[in-house]
């Protein structure tokens, strides 16, 4: 039924493997942005200053309620009109980082809110500052229950990198499209892209589960 050509497959493999590196770079870079920005968004919603909380809350809701693809287009094509001229890579990482930061901030928020009032009061009773309480008491305990959610979004951000192909980031999907257009053959490149995604996603999900268990053990939180 399929006309699978092995010669063609082998000939395009090096280009796809090279593009895999770029995909991983996009996913890793975007995730890094999301991890840091997400924590800032989560903590900003917990300040006593209500206007900030409200603005950040709405921002997070806005980002979560609009498609990533639209955000990618918006930053890349509309950005220059407001003086924001970004390369495809920078625009792509900004969009995907910001998008996932909104999701991760909810994961962090859930983790932080799962820590009981007693821990805050105990920290207050030994006269810890708010910053030290977050750093030493709250975040270490909020981390293990958040790892599963954080890991899901790591795999999610990886699978969403093809969205960046639309603004010309030379990742896997973009490369597969190019190969297809050059050779009028789409079966092999797209199949390989699928297999490569699978080969990375599955072990990654497994590693996340291992990491969660290891973190719990290290913090003495597993019974």
């Amino acid at each position: 039924m399929f006309d699978w050509q092995w010669d063609f497959t082998w000939s395009i493999l090096p280009r796809l493997i090279e593009a895999t590196g770029k995909t991983l770079l996009a996913a890793g870079g975007g995730y890094l942005v999301a991890l840091v920005l997400g924590l800032i968004l989560a903590l900003a919603q917990r300040t006593p200053w209500k206007p900030l909380t409200l603005v950040v809350r709405e921002l997070v809701e806005f980002i979560r309620s609009t498609p990533l693809l639209l955000q990618v287009f918006f930053i890349y094509y509309v950005g220059p009109q407001i003086g924001l001229r970004l390369s495809p890579w920078t625009a792509g990482l900004t969009a995907i980082g910001l998008h996932y930061a909104a999701y991760l901030s909810e994961v962090y928020r859930g983790g932080i809110e799962s820590i009981g009032k007693g821990q805050w009061e105990a920290a207050r009773a030994i006269n810890m500052s708010t910053a030290a309480t977050y750093r030493r008491i709250i975040i270490p305990q909020a981390l293990p229950p958040s790892i599963a959610g954080m890991g899901n979004y790591l795999v999610g951000i990886f699978k969403d990198t093809p969205m960046l192909s639309v603004i010309g980031v030379g990742e896997l999907m973009h490369t597969a499209n190019t190969i297809g257009a050059e050779n009028y053959r789409y079966l092999e490149p797209y199949t390989l892209v699928g297999l490569i995604f699978l080969a990375i996603s599955l072990p990654a999900a497994w590693l996340v589960r291992r990491f969660e268990a290891a973190t719990r053990r290290r913090l003495g939180l597993s019974k």
């Binding site: 821990q119 006269n127 810890m128 030493r136 305990q141 003495g220 939180l221």
Partner: peptide
Amino acid sequence: CFQHFNLFPHMTALENCMEGPVQV
């Protein structure tokens, strides 16, 4: 001291007693 102790669960008994002196 609290009714429900409120020890820091991610620290050992010793670390619980060192946290304030070291950090604060």
